[in-house]
Deep mutational scan, measured.
Amino acid sequence: EKIKSDFFELLSNHHLDSQSRWSKVKDKVESDPRYKAVDSSSMREDLFKQYIEKIAKNLDSE
C-alpha cells in the first residue's frame, strides 16, 4: 500500500490528465526510486491506470 501511494505521488508530480499515456509517462519517471519500488512493469501500468481513473473521476465530480 505504501508503494502504491508513493507511486501515485510520483505520478501526481507530473501533472497528468485522463489523456496521458503510460508509454510517455514511463520515460519521464523510470529513473525515480518510487518507480523502481514497484516490482513488475505490469503492476506499474496497472497502478498508472488506477491513477488515471482516479483523476478522471475527480474531474467529473468538479
Rank of each mutant, 00 (worst) to 15 (best):
V25Q: 03
K4W: 02
N13H: 15
D46K: 12
S5L: 13
W22Y: 04
N58F: 06
D17R: 02
K24N: 14
K2G: 06
K4R: 10
K24C: 15
E9K: 10
S20Y: 03
K49E: 10
S12K: 15
W22V: 01
E1L: 08
E53L: 08
E53F: 05
S5T: 14
K36A: 11
L10V: 03
Y51W: 07
L16N: 02
S42K: 13
W22G: 02
Q50D: 12
V38A: 04
D39C: 11
Y35D: 01
S23Q: 07
H15V: 09
N58M: 07
K2N: 12
S5F: 12
D17S: 08
K4Y: 06
D32Y: 00
K57G: 11
L59P: 13
F7G: 01
V29F: 14
D32C: 00
S40T: 10
I3V: 09
S61R: 12
D17K: 03
E9V: 04
S23T: 10
L16Y: 05
K4H: 06
R34Y: 00
S5N: 14
D6N: 06
S31K: 12
S23W: 11
K28H: 15
S18Q: 07
S23V: 14
I52L: 14
A56C: 11
A56R: 11
P33H: 07
Q19H: 15
D39L: 11
D6K: 04
Q50G: 04
F8K: 02
I3T: 08
I55L: 14
L11F: 01
W22Q: 01
K24E: 15
E45K: 07
D6F: 00
M43F: 08
S41L: 08
I55A: 09
I52P: 02
E1H: 05
S20H: 05
N13W: 04
N13M: 14
K4V: 06
V29M: 14
H14K: 03
K28Y: 09
S23Y: 05
K54W: 06
R44A: 12
I52A: 05
K36E: 07
R34G: 01
K4C: 09
D60A: 08
S18E: 15
L47G: 01
L47W: 10
D46L: 12
Y35C: 09
A56H: 09
N58L: 06
N13P: 04
N58E: 14
S5E: 10
L10F: 01
K26G: 03
F8P: 00
I55R: 10
L11D: 01
H15G: 15
K4M: 07
I55D: 09
L16T: 08
D27G: 15
N58V: 10
L16R: 01
Q50E: 15
V25N: 04
D27Q: 12
S23G: 08
F8E: 05
K24V: 14
R21P: 07
Q50V: 08
L47T: 01
S41C: 11
V29S: 02
S61V: 10
F8Q: 03
L16C: 13
E9Q: 06
K28W: 11
N13G: 09
F7M: 01
P33F: 07
N58W: 03
S5K: 15
D32S: 01
Y51F: 05
L10W: 00
Y51P: 03
D39A: 12
D60S: 11
K36H: 09
I3S: 06
K4Q: 06
Y51E: 02
S31N: 12
E9Y: 03
H14F: 14
F7H: 01
L11C: 04
L16D: 02
K2V: 04
S40W: 00
E1R: 04
E1M: 04
K49V: 10
K2P: 03
D27N: 13
Y35N: 02
F8H: 05
D46P: 01
S20D: 07
R21C: 10
L10H: 00
K24D: 15
K28E: 10
S20A: 08
V38F: 01
Y35L: 01
Q19M: 13
H14N: 07
L47V: 00
S20L: 04
K57W: 06
F7C: 01
F7I: 01
I55Y: 11
S40M: 04
F48R: 03
I3E: 08
S12T: 07
Y51N: 04
K49M: 09
L10T: 01
W22F: 05
H14L: 14
V25T: 06
M43K: 13
D39Y: 08
S42Y: 08
F48Q: 03
K26V: 08
A56V: 09
V29T: 04
F8L: 07
S31L: 08
F48G: 03
K2Q: 07
K49S: 11
S61P: 14
D17L: 02
D6A: 08
K54F: 10
I3H: 07
K4I: 12
Q19A: 10
S18K: 13
I3P: 03
D6T: 02
D32H: 00
D17T: 13
E30D: 14
M43C: 10
D17P: 02
D46H: 12
K57Q: 13
K36M: 10
S42G: 10
F8D: 02
N58Q: 09
S23H: 07
L47Q: 01
K57Y: 06
L10A: 03
L59E: 15
S40V: 04
R44C: 13
S42M: 13
S40A: 05
